[in-house]
């Protein structure tokens, strides 16, 4: 494609890319502008990207703590059973010899939300403190965060299924716990946070550093 010496961003050439239909068009500098093709409002970057992402990340961090403190599921089998939190559920699975399942649940409901939030906070801090980082690696991390986010819904689907499946009166019942609500909130908020963050800011930062 273009040779390296003529690399320029659309913003430097006063061009805007439509967020919805990816049509490139001129900035006419008359406030609010709309895409000629699909009618969406045009911006150089997502509007208030950093502020929105901060807000969503901080609130999902709070909900993540709540989701791990309260029980997410209660299994009562032959009259006995305790409420389980996310972590104790994983440990229970592992002690019963179901290591692969424990690993999948651990990755989907503990590791992914934590790493996702950590990565987003890291990207936000880079923007605020203007740390120097390899922009390509940061973009790859962002892409990973976006890709992996939806898999956190796994535990919630499992709970919804088990609640109906195991509803056998005195023999065995499974009920949900308050953490299910908090955890669903975490999933939604982190997915929205990944959506509001604009990866082009990473590259803008690098261009400023090179000037």
């Amino acid at each position: 494609m273009a040779d390296r010496t003529s690399l320029a961003t659309a913003k430097q050439r006063d061009l805007m890319l439509c967020h919805s239909c990816h049509k490139l068009q001129h900035n006419n500098s008359t406030a609010p502008q709309h895409c000629q093709r699909c009618g969406d409002s045009l911006h150089f970057r997502h509007s208030d990207s950093l502020a929105k992402t901060w807000a969503l990340c901080i609130s999902s961090a709070i909900f993540l703590v709540l989701a791990n403190v309260y029980p997410i599921m209660t299994v009562v089998y032959m009259g006995k059973g305790n409420p389980d939190t996310i972590i104790s559920g994983v440990i229970l699975l592992a002690t019963h010899g179901m290591i692969p399942i424990a690993a999948v649940v651990f990755i989907a409901s503990v590791a992914v939300p934590l790493l996702k939030l950590a990565s987003l906070f890291w990207l936000l801090c880079l923007q605020h403190f203007k740390w120097k980082m390899d922009a390509k690696q940061c973009t790859q991390m962002y892409r990973m965060v976006k890709f992996v986010g939806r898999w956190s819904m796994l535990d919630l689907f499992v709970i919804a299924m088990l609640v109906t499946l195991v509803d056998l009166g005195g023999i065995a019942t499974i009920t949900g716990g308050p953490a299910a609500t908090y955890f669903s909130t975490v999933v939604v908020l982190t997915m929205l946070a990944a959506h509001t963050f604009d990866p082009r800011l990473i590259w803008d930062l690098q261009e400023h550093a090179n000037e």
Binding site: T9, A10, L17
Partner: peptide, 15 residues
């Protein structure tokens, strides 16, 4: 046609 990358805003010729 000219297009731009939606992730890093680089201007490119559409191939």
């Amino acid at each position: 046609t000219v297009t731009a990358c939606h992730e890093c805003d680089l201007l490119l010729q559409a191939a």
